[in-house]
Simulated scan of single mutants.
Amino acid sequence: MSLLQVTYDRLGYTQSKNGTTMSNAWPHPRRGRGHRHKDQDRANREQAVEQKVKDPVPHGICMTMCPANELRQRKAQNRLHKFEMVPGTERDRLPRADVLCAVKEYSRPAAGKDSTRPSDLRPSSALLKTVCYLVDDIAASKTFQPWTEVYSFVFDRLRSVRQDMIIQRLSGPECVTMLEKSVRFLLYASYRLCGQPLQYFDPRINDTHLQETLSWLLECYREGKHQHQEAFQALSLLYNLGSFHTMQHALQLPERIRHSPAVQLALAVSRAHTEGNPVRFLRLAQRLDFMQVCALHRHLLSCRRDLLLLYSHGYNSHNCRYPLQRLSRLLFLKEPLAAELCQVHGVNISREWVIFSKNSFTESPSGDLQCRHMHEPVDDEKWNCNSDGIIHSCD
């Protein structure tokens, strides 16, 4: 072997027909380290893919209400909600974030965006803590105002919670508790914000999310016994009066649930609504608790209109006078509101008497009838209570 060949071998070169080429025997130290890093990254990616194949359902590891990465981004982009800011820094150019109050916001799935990273997902324990904070500390608080802004914040953050739950396919008692609190919040919002401008409250969007959450909750009830199942089965019946699917579901419930007082009362209200009996419907409505009335309230105005229409034909006489006080009890309204409702529908009021006439009755009032205004009933203590102790009364 020649001296030149020995030198080539020691330096790591190989002799080929076309000339001398560098061998991989002695790699460049910096270049070799880069290759090792690339190989390690490739191995990590392959391991992650293999892990996803073995367990396709991601599991969150973020134990705070808002992932650290999102909180940094929103703080830098000045996208913190005022409920998430450190008090006193709201007017700063970049307000400081309160880590204990910041909550992950909802973001739509986008192409190229990985929404399944464990560091961005919250496990069930962290999600339950988040829901309790949103409902008990924000929505039910008397210090956060206006409530339209409270609703907007809580609605968005609860939507993000459900998104994390769906990605991780959560189930079990903690999942049921989160869904129950979400349903109560959305029901209460539909009552409290009824009649608000669309820029503050859209009843259709609220109804869509309420129906989805309620459907998910009822599906979870199929998996086992839960403490508040009877109450929420009744709420579903009252909210979806006239729905064949809801009635069919209620009639197929286990006997112990179907014969519970709450479900039996809801079934009676549903039958009165189906039979077109507004008098019985409103009498039964007076036996409901506040949250049940929140579920029923969107049907009350049409039922009261039907009662006035029925009485306008039944008591159609110039010589007939009906006591306003008695009618207000039937309508389950205070006398001034009952008189206002009568006048809107063309029913004449003469002092404390009501004069019904089928010719003057107006089924579709031309004026702006405030639905929320007409939901105010007789019993102030039972109906006109604050949100504190209402939304989160199911624990």
Rank of each mutant, 00 (worst) to 15 (best):
T177W: 07
L186C: 04
F153W: 03
R157T: 09
I167N: 11
Q199F: 13
P197I: 06
M165Q: 14
K181D: 05
G195I: 02
L179F: 09
V176Y: 06
S160P: 03
R184Y: 03
F155R: 08
C194N: 10
E180K: 05
S160V: 09
M178F: 09
Q168D: 13
F155Y: 15
L186A: 03
V154A: 05
R169P: 10
P173Y: 03
G172R: 00
D164T: 09
V154Y: 09
Q196A: 13
S152V: 10
P173S: 00
S190F: 06
R169D: 15
R162I: 10
V154G: 00
D156S: 15
Y191Q: 01
L158T: 14
L170F: 14
L179P: 00
S152H: 15
E180P: 00
L179H: 11
Q163P: 02
A189S: 07
V161H: 04
L186P: 01
L193H: 12
L179A: 07
L170T: 15
R157L: 03
R157D: 07
L158Y: 13
R192S: 06
R159E: 11
L193F: 14
R162F: 11
L198D: 12
Q196Y: 14
Q199V: 10
Y191W: 08
S171R: 05
Y191S: 01
S152F: 13
L187R: 00
Q196T: 11
A189I: 03
L158Q: 12
L170I: 13
I167V: 15
F185P: 00
E174T: 04
L179R: 03
V176P: 02
S182K: 01
F155H: 12
E174W: 09
F153H: 02
S171A: 11
M165C: 08
S171C: 05
L158F: 12
G172E: 10
R157I: 06
Q199D: 14
M165L: 07
S182V: 03
F153N: 02
Q196F: 11
M178H: 07
Y188E: 04
D156Y: 13
Y191E: 01
S190A: 13
L193T: 09
S171T: 15
L179E: 05
F155P: 02
L198C: 12
A189F: 04
F185R: 00
K181W: 13
F153A: 01
L193S: 08
R192M: 07
T177S: 09
L186R: 07
L187H: 03
R157G: 04
I167T: 15
R184C: 02
S152Y: 15
E180S: 06
F185M: 00
Q199Y: 14
Q196V: 08
Y188D: 07
T177E: 13
S152N: 12
P173F: 01
D156F: 08
Y200R: 15
Q196N: 14
L179W: 10
S182Q: 05
S152K: 15
R159Q: 14
L187P: 01
S182E: 03
Q199K: 13
